[in-house]
Design a protein around this nucleic acid. Sequence first.
DNA 1: AGTCGCTCCTGCGTGC
DNA 2: TGCACGCAGGAGCGAC
Length: 295
Amino acid sequence: MPELPEVETVRRGLNRVTPGAKILGGDLLLDRTIAHPAPGEFIAALTGLTLVTWQRRGKYLLAELQSPATAASGLGKAQLTQAPPSTSYWVVHLRMTGQLLWVDQAEPLAKHTRVRLFFPENRELRFVDTRTFGQMWWVPPDRNLADIIPTLGKLGPEPFSEAFSEDYLADRLQASRRPIKTALLDQTLVAGVGNIYADEALFLSRIRPTTRCDRLSLPQITALRQAVIDVLEKSIGVGGTTFSDFRDVQGLNGNYGGQAWVYGREGEPCLVCGTALDRMRLAGRSSHFCPTCQT
DNA sequence: AGTCGCTCCTGCGTGC
DNA sequence: TGCACGCAGGAGCGAC
């Protein structure tokens, strides 16, 4: 399931192949995928625009799009020369099962293909999403990203940024009585952590998922912050995990050589102390932990 | 305002 | 063999 490391891996893959590519057209196969504008307007809105670069914010992918140079067209010339540089954004959230694949247009369509965008030389960016939770937006040049995508505007700091400081984390956690596992999944606390890395980071910092945020000690908060950073960084470094069926833009699986410490290992021995790992339901999701190592 | 449970959806594994 | 069921989980939403 795409969390920050998988999304970052997709971003890097896209930036190797799509910059400078002009969108020639497309095909929308599932209207529900388009959150903005109206599904019927989506393909037309993107057609003719050029992909500049891909950015990431939390689990969101943001493609910067550029209109054709004013000199390139005789149409609406007067208007265009007055307009500010018209950068718009194509924003994609993979949710649970979304995949962006850079393929040849002759590639057979996967069953759950939702959106196709066509590029020169028979190339295609294809959005495949089994469970249809994935969404995409087009944000026109004169609109703010946060207005069109409110959740994007409410995201907490990036885990690798200075804003994700010990002071920030301590302040936020001390004001909350939620279980720490629940808080880690809250994208307004820190952007990009999902269920897998939340469990892994809690194991690495030896904290029980059920621990109330306001009862964490400062050393625990320090350890947790570092564990979040470490586990995400390590996974990015190896191109996303193989904990899931994640695929990069070339359709290849991640090559994470190691294994999860706790995620998906209920009943198996803790790799540190040998105790059988436990699993419980928290905030509607499975939480895996070692009853001995995590207190 | 903080917190929680429900819901969206499809495929897969399990048990009867 | 076939079927029902639980589970996977990101995040929007309504409820308390």
